[in-house]
Amino acid sequence: MSDQPYIHALADVQSLRIGERTRVWQFVVILPGAAIGDDCNICSHCFIENDVVVGDRVTVKSGVQLWDGLRLEDDVFVGPNVTFTNDRFPRSREHPGAFPQTYVRRGASIGGGATILPGVEIGERAMVGAGAVVTRDVAPRAIVVGSPAKVIGYADALGS
């Protein structure tokens, strides 16, 4: 097996910082400033902006956009159609001087269709339920669901 990343012929990868053994599938756009780690899987129909850092062994399922200011640490799972936002007060043609940084810490998982507001931190090995709306920080190992997302338990209690 080659250590080179696999980049599908129908992907538009402008970044030179794509890690070893990472797979980038069709209809993915990765802008030049993005950094993607080793052994990642970036599924079809994803968009990754410039000021984005993706750690090692991260899975980003189809239909996800990673906007400026996002940091995904190692072993993160992002389910299909998760929505990350990076501007609390968006207006057409008005951009903030800097985008808030959003952190998804090591080993956290985000279920399909969840929405993550800008500037929050999702703690290590936390679980965000499908469709949840995360409006504030999520503690390490917390399991959150709903809108707004609320803690319903902790991963340790379930043996996860």
Rank of each mutant, 00 (worst) to 15 (best):
F99D: 01
D74I: 07
V54H: 07
G107M: 00
S62T: 15
G112C: 03
R106W: 07
V29W: 05
G63D: 08
W25T: 02
L117I: 06
P96R: 01
V120L: 00
F89Q: 13
P118Y: 04
L72S: 04
G111Y: 09
D38S: 13
V60T: 09
F77G: 10
V120E: 00
P80Q: 14
Q26D: 13
W25G: 03
V104G: 03
S62L: 12
T83E: 07
R57F: 07
G107E: 03
V60C: 08
D87S: 09
I7R: 06
Q101M: 08
R21L: 12
D87E: 09
R23I: 15
N81V: 06
P90H: 06
P32V: 03
R71F: 03
S92L: 14
C46T: 13
L31V: 08
R93Y: 11
V29A: 10
V82C: 02
G63H: 06
D87Y: 02
I116P: 07
F77S: 13
N41E: 13
N50A: 04
P80L: 04
D12G: 09
F84Q: 02
N41K: 09
I7E: 08
H95K: 14
V54P: 10
R23K: 15
V78Y: 01
I116T: 08
Y103D: 07
E94S: 09
G111A: 00
A108E: 07
S15K: 11
V13L: 02
F47W: 13
D38T: 11
V76G: 01
N81A: 12
I18A: 04
E49I: 06
V13D: 07
E49N: 05
D51M: 02
V24E: 07
V82A: 04
N81D: 11
V60M: 01
G112H: 01
Q101N: 12
A34N: 07
